[in-house]
C-alpha cells in the first residue's frame, strides 16, 4: 500500500529549500501507520501557526537525515563531541576526540 515511487533522476540538492510550507493540515494525507498531528492542539489555528505533539514529531526522527544546508561546520563553533565511553573520568578536556566512536 506504499505510494513511494522510485525516482530514477538524481534528487534535487535539497528538498528542504524548495518544499512549500503546509497551509492547512487537513490537506495532508499521511501514509498508513503515520499519525497525524493531534487535532485538539490546532483547534483555533491562525496563519498556519501549527502546534505539534511529541508523538507526531518523533515520527520524523529517522527520516529527516539531511544536514541543513545552512548548518556551519560545527568544530568551527567549538561544538565537538567528547567521547564519554573511552574517558568516563575525563577531566579538564583531556577526553576530547575529534570523532566520537560508538556513534
Amino acid at each position: 500500500a506504499s505510494t513511494t515511487k522510485k525516482d530514477i533522476s538524481a534528487p534535487p540538492p535539497s528538498a528542504l529549500l524548495t518544499a512549500r510550507v503546509i497551509e492547512n493540515l487537513s490537506e495532508v494525507a499521511y501514509p498508513e501507520g503515520i499519525k497525524s498531528p493531534k487535532v485538539e492542539l490546532n483547534a483555533n489555528v491562525r496563519d498556519g501557526r501549527f502546534r505539534y505533539d511529541r508523538d507526531f514529531l518523533m515520527q520524523f526522527m529517522h527520516i529527516c537525515k539531511e544536514k541543513p544546508p545552512t548548518l556551519p561546520a560545527l568544530d568551527v563553533l567549538g561544538i565537538e563531541p567528547v567521547d564519554q565511553a573511552s574517558f568516563p573520568m575525563a577531566r579538564g578536556g583531556s577526553g576530547r576526540h575529534r570523532n566520537a566512536s560508538g556513534a
Binding site: 510550507v21 520524523f60 527520516i63 529527516c64 537525515k65 544536514k67 548548518l71 556551519p72 560545527l74 564519554q84
Partner: peptide, 23 residues
C-alpha cells in the same frame, strides 16, 4: 549555530549536532 522554521529542518539539525551527553 543555525535557524530553522520547519519540523523537517529541526530533525536535520538534530541528526547532525552533538547531543548534550557528548558536550
Amino acid at each position: 549555530v543555525v535557524s530553522f522554521d520547519s519540523v523537517e529542518e529541526f530533525w536535520g539539525l538534530y541528526n547532525h549536532i552533538v547531543p548534550p551527553s557528548q558536550l
